[in-house]
Amino acid sequence: MHLNIEIKARCKQQQEAIRQLLIERNADFRGTDHQIDTYFQVANGRLKLREGNIENNLIHYQRPDQAGPKTSEVHLYKPTDSESLRVLLQTALGVKVVVDKQREIYFLDNVKFHLDTVKELGTFVEIEAIDADGSIGAERLHEQCQFYLDLFAIAEEDLLQNSYSDMLLEK
């Protein structure tokens, strides 16, 4: 398990400006990933299987629905055969919703950035400060998120409290 503090926001015309700020800071661009996130029916938290060209993980997390920085406890499992795992989980648990997105992935130190275009929803930015080994702490992660929120000039009304899955379910 590791600790994440994350922010998700609508990003109407800002994606190019944010991309340029990341490039100017020599962010490590990992690529653009077409990701299909299948969310399953579970009693506690959220369980999704992410299938992409860059990232393939079974992810369980618990996170409050609130605008601005959110703390998540995340468990990751890297399956060797995600298609078989998806079929097994669909059969056993049932599918809640599927999120289809194009995601640009960048890193600056321990902070991960996503520039997302989500089918049926639009464009977004995510800032995810990650403490993989317990050495950074929640306070520093919050500071990092706030720094990038300010740098990217993200307006408070653009901050999202729900996940893409919740937004699709509300449509």
Rank of each mutant, 00 (worst) to 15 (best):
Q66R: 14
D28N: 14
L49V: 02
I105K: 08
N53R: 11
D116R: 04
H114W: 03
Q66F: 05
Q15L: 15
N110E: 09
D133Q: 11
N44I: 11
A9T: 04
Q15R: 14
V118C: 06
D37V: 01
E55K: 13
G45W: 01
F147V: 12
K119L: 10
V125E: 02
Q13C: 08
R103I: 06
S165V: 01
M167I: 04
R30T: 06
C145Y: 00
P69Q: 03
Q66T: 08
V111N: 07
E104K: 13
R10P: 02
L141M: 04
R30E: 09
E6Q: 09
L149I: 15
E51F: 04
A67G: 04
K171A: 09
Q90D: 12
H60R: 14
Y148L: 00
E83K: 14
F107M: 10
D28S: 09
C11Y: 00
L89I: 06
F29Q: 04
Q20D: 13
K8Y: 06
R140D: 10
D33F: 02
E6C: 04
A132H: 13
N162K: 15
V125Y: 01
T80E: 15
K96R: 15
Q62D: 15
E51W: 02
S165W: 02
L141C: 07
D109L: 11
A129E: 04
R19M: 08
E83V: 11
R103C: 04
L108W: 06
V99W: 06
K171I: 08
L76Q: 10
I5M: 08
Q62M: 14
F40C: 01
I5P: 00
A153G: 08
T91H: 15
Q14T: 10
E157Y: 15
V98L: 05
T71S: 13
L47N: 02
F147Q: 09
Q102D: 13
N56D: 06
E55N: 13
N53Q: 15
R30I: 12
F107I: 11
R46V: 03
Q35T: 04
F124E: 05
G68M: 03
A155H: 12
S84K: 08
L141Q: 03
L49I: 05
F29H: 13
V42W: 02
K70S: 02
I36W: 03
V99N: 03
R63I: 10
Q41A: 08
E170V: 06
R50G: 02
F29E: 03
F40G: 00
L49Y: 00
S163F: 01
I54M: 02
L159S: 02
C11T: 00
I18R: 01
G134R: 07
P79C: 08
E128W: 02
V99M: 07
H34A: 11
